[in-house]
């Protein structure tokens, strides 16, 4: 009982922290805005016109986008780790991100007249790439961390090759795609936000239904099927949801690595492996982490805007190595 309330407290604190961080992040930048001003603008919209534009058209959409996409990728990683029974699975290592990116880039560079199909292309690309990783890593008794890393490396290299080839073929159109490839939230504005939001909300609602199934899978295939579950069907459905959440994020802001790996792991350390807590925890923490990465990239080297994906890689890769050393998987 005490454990349950402790876990809920941690989850709620994380969400509150994300909200506080969001308000602070709105104030930070080349024009700094005080917190009372921000609150006055958002809740009464009766402040100066300049602040109004900066907040409503530039900073708020960017902050919300960071929160939403951070949550999406972290939930995606948490689901994939459950499905594969493997704490190293995440949208990056399992090929979802690079597969989605390759397909999006095909449209962006080769077929720019079809940009409305970018979300679909991302989903298809993520699905194909992760299915290949899955098929290669699968052994009779499940998926081992080693085989998933090896097949992930192979498929990511293939997708990287496609991305490189496209960049050379269409080098004249490349500058527009570079920011996107590095996972940047700069100059996204309300369009990207409106594109992602409905998909994200749909995905989050489906995630609530996924909690119980993800928990059953934790007990292993035999026990889950003994409890009357169709394990393969659960695996496929949860994987589809994870790919969907990661792919729409890629479609919106490009490749951001490590959020899906690091955040669910931190969530597990904080609230345990029960998805009832672990999934909302990943959601809140993912939002917070990506917001910090994006805001950090925006202000640390101002006026340069370092893409959040680059900052995440710089922070995330050492954490990943640390996990490997500790052998917690």
């Amino acid at each position: 009982m005490t454990n349950t309330s402790r876990s809920w407290t941690i989850v709620i604190i994380t969400f509150l922290l994300a909200i506080v961080a969001a308000i602070i992040a709105i104030g930070l930048g080349s024009v700094s805005i005080s917190i009372p001003d921000i609150l006055r603008t958002i809740f009464t919209s009766s402040s100066e016109a300049v602040n109004d534009t900066i907040i409503w058209d530039i900073r708020l959409p960017r902050v919300l986008l960071a929160l939403i996409i951070g949550a999406n990728i972290a939930i995606s990683g948490a689901l994939l780790q459950g499905v594969m029974g493997n704490p190293l699975a995440d949208p990056g290592l399992t090929g979802v991100t690079s597969g989605a990116a390759a397909c999006v880039l095909i449209i962006m560079l080769a077929l720019p007249e079809y940009t409305q199909f970018i979300p679909v292309a991302a989903f298809v690309g993520g699905l194909v790439a992760s299915s290949i990783v899955y098929a290669l890593a699968w052994r009779r008794n499940g998926i081992s961390p080693i085989t998933i890393i090896l097949s992930g490396v192979a498929v990511n290299a293939l997708c990287g090759g496609i991305i490189g080839w496209l960049s050379i073929m269409f080098s004249d159109r490349l500058p527009a795609a570079v920011q996107w490839l590095n996972g940047s939230l700069a100059a996204k504005g309300n369009n990207a936000l409106y594109m992602v939001l409905p998909y994200a909300i749909g995905g989050w609602i489906l995630s609530i239904f996924a909690i119980r199934k993800a928990n059953i899978i934790r007990l292993g295939d035999q026990v889950a099927s003994n409890l009357g579950e169709n394990v393969n069907r659960i695996r496929i459905l949860l994987s589809l949801l994870a790919v969907f959440l990661a792919a729409i994020s890629v479609a919106a802001i490009g490749m951001v690595g490590f959020v899906g790996l690091v955040v669910p792991h931190m969530a597990r350390l904080l609230v345990g492996s029960d998805y009832k807590f672990m999934l909302p925890m990943s959601m809140g923490l993912g939002a917070l982490v990506l917001l910090i990465a994006d805001t950090g990239g925006r202000i640390l080297f101002s006026p340069l805007d370092i893409p959040a994906g680059i900052l995440m890689a710089v922070i995330g890769a050492p954490y990943f190595l640390y996990l490997m050393r500790r052998r917690t998987f």
Partner: peptide
Amino acid sequence: SQKNQAPNDM
């Protein structure tokens, strides 16, 4: 089954 595995914190 012979051997079952529960999550560490269950």
